[in-house]
Structures are given as structure tokens and as C-alpha cells.
Amino acid sequence: MAIRQTPEGPIWRKRTGLASVALWCGWLALVLLFVVAWEAMTRNQIWAFVWDAPEQAADLIDRMVPPRWSYMDQLWAPLWDTINIATLGTLMAILLAVPVAFMAARNTTPSVLFVRPVAIFIIVASRSVNALIWALLLVAILGPGLLAGIIAIALRSIGFIGKLLYEAIEEIDPRQVEAVRATGAGPAQVLDFGIVPQIMPAFAGITLFRWDINIRESTVLGLVGAGGIGLQLKASVDGLAWPQVTLIFIVILATVILSEWVSARVRAALT
């Protein structure tokens, strides 16, 4: 906010001269950056492909409908695999993430100096890599199949569950813990009576939420060979069998919506 003196009298401006110049420079830099990035990105673009994109889209839609409903018979088994990948992966992630979370939370970690940084590193590394990339690596190492998918989901979920859980642990009421400690309880008993009951609701919510996300992610893991309905998707796309692709999209969409509904219902029932 500034008042500027001019021959016609004082003029009110929201910002001082310097601040508005800085703001303008910021916006200008963003615009320039955008132009440069756009140029770099589209350098090798063949625009002819883009100009006929509407026709391509129309053509694609034309080929995609109607969906090939009879293909459904071959989708039940991959769908079951998909759900297994998500559920077993989530369970595996819970087993690994819970100790990591307790090591990462300031108030429960055995050592702030040595153990906590390791736990935080595990969480960060797990979070920065998408489940699909984990799957890519694991398929290369373990070969294609459900196992790679389950481990990929688990590896990605450790960071998610671990981060939210350790934040929940850091937010517990310390007085309840102090009261249990004052009874002469040992460390394991303090955990059992003082800490675990306080984080149970958060824990249930976080894992159900992650399960829901995992269902969504496991539907596409098959694209890199990690099992589930994505395998059929890849085969259909590669074989240009677009009516099958449409059906798979519909099945994926229905599964995602259903799992979201289930997880929301269970979470509501638990809290």
C-alpha cells in the first residue's frame, strides 16, 4: 500500500513502486519461461499430426464404440488379480510402514539423530517414485507377474502411509501418554495403552484411503507387465483392438468408483 504524490494530488496505489515492479518482473519471467519451454517442447513436433487430431479423435471414437461386451469373459480373472495386487500390496505396505512411522515420529523414535533420518529417507524415496516406475524396475528384476505388482504397490505405499502415520503420531496428546507412564508401565505397555489407541482412527483412515488409491494404480500396472487388468489393456492397445479398450476403460472406471465408495463407507463407519 502506498500513497504517491503527483501534481494532481496524492494517488493511492495498492503496492509501492518497487513491489509492483518486482511483481511485474515475476510475471514476465514466468511468461518468458513458458514461451521458451513451449518452443523446446514442440521443436520436434510434427504439426500435421496435431492439425488432424480432431479427425483422429473422431475416427478413434468411431472405432471405440460400441464396446465389445463379449470380451468381459476374459476380464474377470485379471480384475481379480488387480484387486489382489492392491489389497495384498497395501497389507505388505502396512507391515513395513508402521515401524518406519514409529521410527520417524519425533516422540517415539529411538534416536532423533541416527534412526529418524533413515526413516525419513525411506519415506521420501518411496514417495518420489511412482508405483508404475517401481513396477518397471521390479518387472525387470523379478520378471512379469503379480508379485512384481504387489511389491511395487507396497514400495510406493510405504512412503504414503509412513508419512501420514508419523504425522498422526506426532500429534497425539502427550498427557495421556504421561498418565500411562506414571502408573509404572514399561515402554511396550505405554505404546499399547497410551499411543496405539490414539492413532487407531488415523491409521484406519490412512490405510483405507491408500487402498482406494492402490486399486486405481494397480489397474494400470499391467502396462509394464506387473499383472492385473492393465495387461489386457496393453495387449488391446498394441493390437489396436479399440472396442476392447473401451470395455476395459469402463471396467476400470467402475472398479475405481466402487472402491472409492467402499473406502468412504468403511471410513465413515469407523469414525
Binding site: A185, A188, D192
Partner: peptide, 27 residues
């Protein structure tokens, strides 16, 4: 009060015995 809010009244009462019983019993 510093009761463990999400435990039952009885569990809170029994938590007074934690210093006397083993971890597995209390678990």
C-alpha cells in the same frame, strides 16, 4: 483427567495395574 480417551473406562482403570502385569498379559 489424562484418561486414554479411546479406551473403555475399564481399560483405563486396569491401566493402573500395568506396572504389575507382564506386557503380553496387558496386550
Amino acid at each position: 483427567y489424562a484418561l486414554v480417551e479411546r479406551l473403555t473406562v475399564m481399560e483405563n482403570l486396569l491401566s493402573g495395574r500395568l506396572g504389575y502385569v507382564s506386557f503380553w498379559r496387558s496386550l
